[in-house]
């Protein structure tokens, strides 16, 4: 069976800076693949390119075997790709429910239906379950991350891109967030998980990709990547 997501020699440039150089890897359906690397390695650039938020300079991105390289973000969401951005990026001046409804923006414009679905989604996240009418900006960091994930799920993705969900969270909250990720995985959601701290990611992932200065230097099952000496180098040798 073809992988759900496939990157073929993808390069991304920010002006003169080449943030990604000829990156190729794939994500199997039903798995969690983590993308790890030092700060500035190009992890966010990779997932943003997959989500259609950053244009590619060259290469191809295939989703379910279909070339989506040139499709706008809205089309990719409709096809089943959703992203929880680095730094949560929730809409702080709107309520939790409104944030969730916006997550389903491409799927429906029926407000009452969306509201019902948002409430159902909320119920799945104990961290924020009773915060529906609160302004998202007033939530704590962990609650915001839960909201970001919940919002990404509102579009009913086949592939969920999570960019550093643990960033800036206290260890106890990181555990809660990873519990959520694990639950999602158990329900069969395919996830591409970006982490700077590999230890967390390895706990839930089957496969791992390592980025170094915009290039993919290592990829394979977590069991192998974890023990590869090049992994340490990826973090130390920058």
């Amino acid at each position: 069976m073809a992988p759900l997501l496939q990157l073929e020699n993808v390069s991304v440039k920010y002006g003169a800076i080449e943030a990604l150089r000829e990156v190729s890897f794939s994500v199997e359906e039903g798995s969690i693949t983590c993308l790890i690397g030092a700060n500035g390695a190009g992890k966010s650039t990779t997932v943003n390119a997959i989500a259609g938020l950053v244009p590619t300079a060259s290469g191809r991105i295939l989703f379910q075997g279909e070339d989506i390289t040139k499709l706008p973000a809205s089309r990719r969401i409709a096809m089943g790709i959703s992203i929880a951005l680095e730094g949560r990026k929730i809409f702080g001046d709107q309520t939790v429910i409104d944030n969730l409804m916006l997550g389903a923006y491409t799927r429906s414009k029926n407000l009452s239906k969306l509201r019902r679905e948002a409430e159902e989604m909320l119920a799945r996240f104990p961290l924020i379950a009773d915060r529906g009418q609160q302004l998202a900006g007033t939530l704590s960091g962990g609650q915001q991350q839960a909201l970001a994930i919940a919002r990404a799920l509102m579009s009913r993705p086949k592939l969920l891109l999570l960019d550093e969900p643990s960033l800036g969270l206290a260890p106890i909250l990181i555990q809660e967030i990873y519990q959520i990720i694990q639950d999602l995985a158990d329900q069969g959601t395919t996830i591409l998980l970006v982490e700077q701290f590999a230890a967390y990611a390895f706990m839930v992932s089957q496969n791992a990709c390592v980025l170094e200065h915009g290039q993919l230097t290592l990829a394979g099952p977590v069991a192998e990547v974890r023990d590869d000496p090049r992994l340490a180098r990826a973090y130390l040798g920058k």
Partner: peptide, 23 residues
């Protein structure tokens, strides 16, 4: 309206709005 919320979303964070499929 969802459109209005989308305007506010774009106002608040353009990239995050795009990530929800808001044009």
């Amino acid at each position: 309206t969802l459109m209005g919320k989308a305007i506010k979303a774009v106002a608040f964070d353009r990239m995050a709005a795009e990530a929800q499929g808001i044009n």
